[in-house]
Write a protein that binds this DNA or RNA. Structure first.
Lengths: 160, 160
DNA sequence: CTTCATAATGCATAAATATACAATTAGAGT
DNA sequence: ACTCTAATTGTATATTTATGCATTATGAAG
């Protein structure tokens, strides 16, 4: 149709400027802007634009545009091996510290980072120590749980 | 359930290593791995993990993890600046964390250190994370302000 | 202008996904 | 152990999204 590309541009703009929860909402906004189409067309448009629907922190879903993750893909089968360097877990000042055999910290930290644990705002690895900065509100128990998930074989040494 | 977090980790891994077109497919893969649940649970898990379904170039949809646009845009227009590599700023436990593209943390941290910012007691750089330890009494706003002074071109991404 | 090919769209419906509700379970505290 | 609370899950279903098919529109070529 004559309007298609205009509509696509408008859809992009609407998505960048509004919290749109479903295609029906988008349809109404488009109608307000003078575009007439059906939900079926929107579905196709969103497919074309590679728009995605993502959960928000307040329990809803909104549409947004997507950027590919540039992630280093490393096989997780190594995690059992890497955890060999683990020595111990300690807590201080609301931070968690993992002691490792010298040289093992960065590889262990990488395994942790790869799982992108929600509870950790970030990790910093030295040579034989990993510093884990938990997100505010995260408890020691939360941290131990998360680490057990990543290194099941270390459960005994992570659990209090 | 004891299995939930394990399942979440497994789901993440499956999504990173397989082309999964719908929740039913994911369900089968999980079943193969020994997890038993229903589509309803998967829907909730994917919501929790902020997994998105995105159109592929061959006309299908696959699940993938999402990275926010703001976090990834590394424009060529900033390539002349040392701030290249900056991904995002976060606060946790009274500390500031700067996420960078892997390998960029130390050079960025060096720029920060060179300006000897009074508000920072010190910085520690890993591979893709810089930890900033603020002096006592420094607020989040102070930190943002200082960082804008050091990296004016990142103002938009440093300001809350 | 007519014909053909292609693209765009709507309709109806299939397919996929989300969720209200109830039941169950895990943990924390006593 | 017992109680309480919050978390987890399945069932059934509502909601949302995708698409097969038919129709219409667009544009190119004769």
């Amino acid at each position: 149709m004559k309007n298609k590309s205009n509509r696509l541009v408008t859809i992009s703009q609407l998505i960048n400027t509004h919290e749109i929860h479903n295609q029906e909402e988008l349809l109404m906004l488009l109608t307000d802007k003078g575009y007439a189409c059906t939900q079926a067309t929107l579905s196709r448009d969103l497919k074309f634009l590679k728009v995605v629907k993502i959960a928000t922190n307040d329990g809803k879903y909104i549409y947004t545009t997507h950027v590919d993750k540039k992630s280093v893909k490393i096989q997780d089968s190594t995690s059992g091996f890497v955890s060999n360097g683990f020595i111990g877990l300690e807590f201080a000042q609301k931070l968690a510290l993992i002691k490792t055999v010298p040289g093992y910290a960065s590889s262990l930290a990488m395994v942790i980072d790869m799982s992108e644990p929600y509870e950790f705002a970030g990790t910093i690895a030295g040579d034989d120590t990993i510093l884990i900065i938990p997100r505010d509100g995260t408890t020691e128990s939360d941290i131990r749980h998360r680490l057990v998930l990543i290194f099941p074989e270390l459960e005994d040494r992570i659990r209090p």
